[in-house]
Design a protein around this nucleic acid. Sequence first.
DNA 1: TAATCTAACAACGA
DNA 2: CTCGTTGTTAGATT
Lengths: 274, 274
Amino acid sequence: MPELPDIVVLVASMNEALPGKEISNISVHQSKVLNRPITTFRKEMLGRTFRSFSQRGKWVISELDTGSMLAFNLGMGGELRLHWPPMVPDPKRERVVFSFNDGSQLWVHFWWFGHVHLLKSGELSSHPQIGTLGIEPLSDKFTEEKLVEMFEGKRGRIKSYLLDQRFIAGIGNVYIQDILWHAKLHPNRQAKTLLVEDVKRLHHAIQHVLREGIKQGPGPGEQDVWGNRGQWGKQPGWPQIAYRTGKSCPTCQTLIDEIRVGSTTSFLCPRCQV
Amino acid sequence: MPELPDIVVLVASMNEALPGKEISNISVHQSKVLNRPITTFRKEMLGRTFRSFSQRGKWVISELDTGSMLAFNLGMGGELRLHWPPMVPDPKRERVVFSFNDGSQLWVHFWWFGHVHLLKSGELSSHPQIGTLGIEPLSDKFTEEKLVEMFEGKRGRIKSYLLDQRFIAGIGNVYIQDILWHAKLHPNRQAKTLLVEDVKRLHHAIQHVLREGIKQGPGPGEQDVWGNRGQWGKQPGWPQIAYRTGKSCPTCQTLIDEIRVGSTTSFLCPRCQV
DNA sequence: TAATCTAACAACGA
DNA sequence: CTCGTTGTTAGATT
């Protein structure tokens, strides 16, 4: 699933490519991705234009000319792709296709668990998932103190909290790998054992890795609205740890390990991360 | 902790012994058993008389002359005892002592986790524990159909549900032993595997064992308000299974086993109960 | 040993 | 983590 950096890059490309296009047709091939009956959805969306796009957690939020919002969650294996000339989509693969008045199309693709939710102005905050998202880790409000607070009184492992979208929005099981490596913290480290020093390193690592992710372009399997992919894995320094099992830790040359943490996989340097 | 049959017997004795007595003094030796500050509690209780007593789940509920309720939960090792002539209670042992105008005393004793909660008329249903109690298993409303419904869509082991006070009120880890033996059901039996036949046997076993418990008098460690104890363990047929590890199953002579089920102990016939 | 609440965790389903 | 629900467990304690 695309995480914060992937969404930031995708949203930037959508802001270049899509504003002003008027929706002239909509095909929905899997109705449960919508939060309304198909007919209602079509009626409310036809004739609308996208005004702008923004990122919130792992969601793409677009503002329509009516002031309503269309919120995309790409689930697993998700893509938002602009197509021109128009093609006939494979209905098994494409969940929703928006056709525009200039002949181009926006394909919403994912193989499982995605959402395309129409929200009236002001309904963002009452949306069961979007409304409960935590802080944006690249915003000014995400301070070291906030991170200290977040762990206060918590008993579990830090990885659980970093992945919990109600605390921090946008970190998933890809970028967290390098975040924990930069912070020199083991994913199983208990929150209550963190020192202020640890939290400071973690705070810095979160912002550093997410910003670097934006700079490097979409992560593995991700792309922008035109299908451009990023540098991930194509150059030596990026990523340092994620999906590099058996390679050497850049700091100490110990071999990178792959372990199960709860139901997720973690990549880590067993020597640097404690 | 006293369970439904023990509470029924205790309540009956309290209805004989206590109505009409006026509370002339109250000593509270552990304030956290109350749901009010001690001074407020004393002010509201002094001069009151007990009108009647009833059983709800594992609670003793008494109605005062004001229409308010005083709800007792005896926690672990709990006793409600009428004393005359008055004695000086050991404050380490006795949590609350009510002195009456005739010189007698009601001692509230337990070594852990008991409650003495004052509730205004109508507050019973909003009490966090009493208000969420499930059905009374000896009431007419407790039908086989109710029991079938209770297990519908449930995935866990039946013992969890039978002990969960939000489903059925009043069964604890003592009487459940003979209930499951009579129903020929293993405590770890998954709810979803129950046949209608099983549920029917279970329904009958619940009512049979609880009624027999009332008839036999208070269970192990329990007593009525005068301190009378029951027949438990003093005669061959009662109980059949509970606390009889290593004895013979009355049906098949297999030795009774003692196992851990979650965090509780279960006694069972490994041959009869499946 | 017991009772109940809760957080954390796992299993499952959508 | 993709997220919600449900059940299980460990820890704390009203």
